[in-house]
């Protein structure tokens, strides 16, 4: 038997003993037996002097590897039986001394999340002014002057004949005026309504609007994108319901309900026991909007959609009062770290 074989033999035996050791004592015994001054491995090393220089090198290296390996195994095994702390003066439970970090406002977090999903589906971010003309906010979007549809949105007027935009949809008109299709845009922004402030309504809030105009765009294309969005945002198991609705600037128009993510559609307080949550409005861009912005509705079609950011944030985080968003109480803000 060569010395190398001896080493391997010792190695295997020692490993076995170490893994079977059931106390610190039996582990120590193993240590003495193999690695001690009179141990088996030490004995092998003593034989080295009888070997040639080359052999010394390779056998010596092998013996050292074996010693190292066994020492590590013993140390690890010893840890299992050890009960005392390594250094009793070190309190590793004291809190770490990082500096405090702040938080992005929850509304911007939600906007970013929504916008990022659409950005990934090829929508470019666009923005527009808060102070708008009647033309962009209403007329070009097929709200005729003095039409009941205008009552849907209580408008805040500013001096100089302009208004605070009641939705982010005017950016759609501005983009359609600036560019030729294909246009694929997502618009986050602030909007205003002249409503009494309550737990559910505020004079200002945020919307994300999006649209695509191109040749041959269909309502099915819209469904595909919105289903993908809702699953990305609310979770893949969610069900969606498209139901007909009315917006002056889309025809056909739809509202999208998602199955309540809290009760999974069984009915709860959040969904008012309907199992569904109203999430966004959408539809095929009305031919009148395309005509007004200089595009041929026979050649181009498009879809548009929009959603209220506060509403989505309130549903997602079960926030019961819309006024929290503008109060900016840091105890509120910091909950969304």
């Amino acid at each position: 038997m060569s010395l190398l074989d001896d080493i391997n033999h010792i190695n295997n035996q020692a490993k076995e003993r170490i893994s079977n050791a059931d106390s610190l004592d039996s582990l120590n015994e193993a240590k003495v037996k193999y690695l001690g001054r009179k141990g088996e491995l030490t004995a092998v090393l003593k034989e080295l002097k009888n070997l040639s220089v080359d052999e010394k090198k390779s056998v010596g290296a092998q013996a050292n590897r074996c010693r190292q390996e066994l020492e590590e195994l013993i140390a690890t095994a010893a840890g299992k039986f050890s009960t005392s702390k390594t250094d009793s003066s070190f309190d590793y439970t004291l809190p770490g001394t990082s500096s405090q970090i702040g938080v992005v406002h929850i509304i911007n977090q939600v906007i970013d999340e929504i916008v990022n999903i659409f950005h990934g589906m090829g929508f470019e971010i666009a923005r527009g002014p808060d102070i708008e003309t009647d033309y962009y906010n209403f007329e070009a979007l097929n709200f005729p002057p003095d039409h009941p549809a205008r009552d849907m949105q209580d408008t805040m007027f500013v001096e100089g004949g302009r208004i605070l935009r009641t939705h982010t949809t005017p950016v759609q008109v501005r983009k359609l005026e600036e560019q030729n299709p294909p246009i694929k845009i997502i618009v986050p922004g602030r909007t205003y309504r002249n409503e009494a402030i309550s737990t559910r309504a505020h004079i200002a809030f945020h919307q994300v609007d999006g649209f695509l105009v191109d040749e041959g765009v269909s309502m099915a294309d819209m469904k595909g994108v919105l289903v993908a969005f809702c699953k990305s945002f609310f979770g893949p198991d969610l069900k969606l319901k498209f139901r007909p609705s009315f917006f002056p600037f889309t025809e056909p128009s739809a509202e999208v309900d998602v199955s309540c993510f809290l009760c999974k559609g069984k009915g709860c307080q959040l969904c008012k026991y309907s199992g569904w949550l109203e999430i966004l409005g959408c539809g095929m861009i009305d031919p009148n909007v395309l005509i007004k912005t200089g595009h041929d509705p026979e050649k181009y079609t498009g879809y548009a959609f929009g959603m209220g950011v506060e509403r989505i944030a309130m549903l997602k985080y079960k926030i019961n009062d819309i006024r929290h968003f503008f109060n900016n109480d840091i105890r509120f803000l910091r909950q969304f770290k």
Binding site: S99, Q100, I101, G102, V103, V104, H105, I107, N108, D130, R190, Y192, H202, I203, A204, F325, F326, N328, I330, L333, R334
Partner: peptide, 13 residues
């Protein structure tokens, strides 16, 4: 935010 500032949003009116 990473240096400890919290973001606020006011409605501008």
């Amino acid at each position: 935010t990473s240096s400890g500032f919290d973001e606020t949003i006011a409605h501008g009116m």
